[in-house]
Amino acid sequence: MTLYEFFIDPFAQFAFMRRALAACLALSLACGPVGIFLLLRRMSLMGDALSHALLPGVAVGFLIAGFSLPAMTIGGFIAGLGVVLLAGTAARFTLLREDASFAALQLISMALGVLIVSTKGGNVNLMHILFGSVLAVDDQALLITAAIASLSLLLLVFIYRPLIIDSFDPGYLQRSGSSGMRWQLLFLATVAMDLVAGFQAMGAMMAVGIMMLPAIAARFWAKEIWSLMATSIVLALGSGVFGLLFSFHYRLPSGPAIILTAGMLHLFSMMFAPLGIVRSRLLRHGRHRKG
């Protein structure tokens, strides 16, 4: 197999591969920066919890409208937003911290979602909803994915400054007469939007992988917020392209192929990136600068 056959041919020949590629590009651009903020705010597991929490909404959308992407997307977003608001409120008015409330709601949502889908849809639909299939992305799905991803990116720009302030000095905004809570909720809404956007291509369980793995790997390459975000986007896109190609050539399910590619990039970064194990621990051992 020539390089052309491996890298270009699948996209040149098949429209579904081109659509999948476009979906991956949209998701990388939206999820990369958001993942960095989740990481830096020590909320790496929050995306995971939130992705589970979307499930009952998706399931209800499925119950009402059958296998209709807009219905399931709207359902998922409403469920995600509901859980964000509930967890935030619970953190404020009870002794539970936000992560504990999230954990509780996630478990309830997950069980509820699986219950709803399996009573009506059967196992095939359940698998599809949980793990998605990027190769089944049609024009409508691509449009929905790209639109939500763009909106979430705009929302992130909108809250960028307060989000950075709140991440460095939690409580600063509240002390300065603005509610830190409001920005946190808007940020979690952004996360929910990205997860919903990724849900058709990746499935509810895998969508969070394209958000967190590249972000975590980026930590080994960059030090400033902007460069972390840029690295995260590039790594996410790389995982998308190679994951799709692996999935195409070796007949693997696309979602796991993309996430595993991201996982391999993460392991590689951890070892060989500028801030990774080899270069920061082994090679530079005993060498230091003069000033």
Binding site: R161, I164, D169, P170, E224
Partner: peptide, 30 residues
């Protein structure tokens, strides 16, 4: 002035940006 333990010192923010935060009341988010 918060106690230093209240800050997320690991957050990759530059000295300039951290000091610029002080303009928040005047410039807000946008």
């Amino acid at each position: 002035l918060p106690q230093q333990t209240d800050l997320e010192a690991d957050f990759p923010i530059s000295v300039w940006d951290a000091v610029t935060m002080g303009h928040w009341r005047r410039v807000g988010a946008w």
